[in-house]
Simulated scan of single mutants.
Amino acid sequence: MKDFKRSRRLRSSAEMRCLVQETTVHISDLIYPMFVVHGENIKREIPNLFGQYHHSVDQLKKAVGEVVELGIKAIVLFGLPEVKDEEASGAYAAEGIVQQAIREVKKHYPNLLVITDVCLCQYTSHGHCGVVKEGTVNNDESIETLASTALSHAMAGADMVAPSDMMDGRVGRIREVLDENNFKHIPIMSYSVKYASAFYGPFRSAANCAPQFGDRKTYQMDPANRLEAIRQVQADLEEGADIIMVKPALAYIDIIREVRDRFSMPLAAYHVSGEYAMIKLAAKHGLLKEEESMVEALTAIKRAGADMILTYFAKDMARWIRRNG
């Protein structure tokens, strides 16, 4: 028989496969999103975001303690205000829900990396990610509000701010405002490549932030575009972004790879609510094995080039890694 390469030699056992495995997801790669609400004694499961909860500030010590115990090094906070208005005033209020949450978390877990989502959609009565004037989102006025929001988070004790709004110039303006107020040490994780995706549905329900008119296609990216992603990343890096992000992750694996090949800066990917919910729902109906699907999905994101992954599976993945070494 003609000689041929026997690749199966290196697949012959679990130990052998582990020895030659090229990609490994580590607990330190994981960032866990958390939702904070006003009130007391609240731990309320979020419909359609299975196994995720709204927590009131007084419940964060226990909830975040579980995250820390698993060895996860970072969380990202999303807040739901009691009152919304057209100016998103709750986003930058000193006693806003995220600002309270930052102080509570840092009081109990000073070494945990607290990242804050900087956007206006949860705080505006119209649900858009910026300030609306004459029926359209006003870019330049919005970035001023976003910068004020980022500053308020830094003042409350956030370790990193993550603008997710997709307004032009917002990274540069946030960097200016942070630097002017003695927060030069606070890094910016920019949602540089954020597509106008159908996979955000469960999140919009969880954060109560669906737009009340129109859609977000005038500021989030067209899913058909690849080269635009490169331009967006380049612009954000020139404005001072320290970490860049691609969102969603699984549907944009090719974009993660493209960004990784072109840029050497740290790269995050957001395994978004719809991508998470599809696995959970399919597993619930016996169509997939949940744990195996979770591991495969997150490994694919890491293999594509992401250095860190924002995922609702963070706690489950951390448990799996602990069991499997």
Rank of each mutant, 00 (worst) to 15 (best):
M160G: 09
V118P: 01
V137C: 00
E176F: 14
E87P: 07
A147V: 00
H185P: 11
K184E: 15
K107S: 15
I186W: 02
H153Q: 11
L113Q: 14
A147C: 04
V105Q: 02
C119F: 10
A88N: 02
I143A: 07
K194Y: 12
I143L: 04
G127Y: 06
R103P: 03
M166A: 11
K194A: 11
S89A: 12
D117P: 00
E104Y: 03
I186S: 00
G90C: 11
Q99H: 07
I102F: 01
A150N: 00
Q100Y: 06
V161E: 05
G172E: 00
M189G: 03
I102R: 07
I143Y: 03
A158N: 04
D140G: 12
S125W: 14
N139D: 09
E180L: 14
E176W: 14
K194E: 11
L120Y: 05
Y123F: 08
N138A: 15
M160K: 09
G157A: 01
V177M: 12
V105F: 00
H153I: 07
V171I: 11
P110C: 13
D85V: 12
V137T: 03
L120V: 09
N111I: 15
A91R: 08
S152H: 01
M167G: 05
A93V: 06
E82A: 13
V98L: 08
H108K: 13
H128N: 05
Y191C: 05
V193T: 00
A88M: 04
Y109Q: 11
N181S: 05
M160Y: 09
K84N: 00
A162S: 14
V98P: 06
V105D: 02
A150V: 03
L178P: 07
I174G: 05
D179S: 12
P81T: 06
G79P: 06
L146M: 11
V105M: 04
S142P: 11
K184S: 15
L112N: 09
S148T: 12
G135H: 07
I97E: 03
V114T: 08
V177Y: 06
A147D: 06
A150E: 00
A150S: 06
V118K: 03
V177W: 07
D168M: 14
G96A: 03
M155T: 15
A150I: 00
V132F: 00
S164L: 10
P187W: 08
A156N: 05
I97N: 03
L178N: 02
L113F: 13
L113G: 10
L113P: 12
A154R: 02
Y191F: 10
V114F: 04
G90E: 08
V171C: 03
L178S: 01
K133W: 10
G79T: 01
H126V: 09
M160A: 12
L120K: 00
T136S: 11
A162Q: 13
K133F: 13
E134D: 15
E104H: 04
D179P: 14
M155D: 14
I143C: 03
K133L: 13
N181P: 03
A88D: 04
L120P: 03
R103W: 05
K106G: 04
A158Y: 02
